[in-house]
């Protein structure tokens, strides 16, 4: 009996995995594992990034995971992109940013990062031309302001 049950489990898990692979779908923890599967041909790319604003008006990029944890630099921009592209995008971004500002300050007070206190959080869309030595990481070609939040 136990062996029959185990065989049912094996067949179910293999069939569910095969379904996601064949149908090109994702049902975590089953997946078709699509990461990096597209062909990248463009010399430019765009990415959403948060910037902190200090009391003296200086802006700095929150480009390390420690500023936005438990989010990371992959998940957060993708989440924000989904919010922007969904219905009521701007309103949803405005609702989301205060959480991220509060979290930045919470992490700072807990000494989880060494960033300065901030008085505002801004979201930009940055565009880079890919440099063959990635020397322009801190100098995007273009940036478009999307939203700002203050405590």
């Amino acid at each position: 009996m136990r062996r029959i049950c185990l065989n049912v489990v094996f067949l179910f898990v293999i069939a569910a995995s095969a379904f996601d692979i064949a149908a090109d779908q994702e049902h975590w923890p089953f997946s078709q594992y699509p990461m990096f599967s597209g062909v990248w041909t463009s010399p430019t790319f765009m990415w959403l990034r948060l910037f902190g604003v200090t009391a003296d008006g200086r802006e700095f990029a929150l480009d390390a995971n420690r500023y936005v944890a438990p989010f990371d630099q992959s998940r957060l921009p993708k989440a924000l992109r989904r919010l922007i592209e969904g219905p009521d995008g701007v309103a949803r971004i405005r609702a989301a940013l205060p959480d991220l500002l509060a979290r930045y300050e919470e992490l700072r007070r807990a000494d989880e990062h060494d960033g300065p206190p901030i008085v505002a959080l801004r979201l930009y869309e940055l565009e880079w031309t890919i440099d063959r030595h990635a020397a322009n990481v801190d100098r995007p070609d273009r940036r478009r302001f999307i939203a700002e939040v203050r405590p």
Binding site: D24, P34, V39, W40, F45, N65, Q73, V137
Partner: peptide, 26 residues
């Protein structure tokens, strides 16, 4: 399926490797 042989034959991986330097990953 999504890229075919281009995934290997094009500059895809080179561009991907460079792009990953721009603080985009987990």
């Amino acid at each position: 399926r999504r890229s075919g042989f281009d995934w290997i034959a094009s500059d895809n991986l080179a561009l991907l490797l460079l792009r990953q330097q721009y603080h985009l990953s987990d």
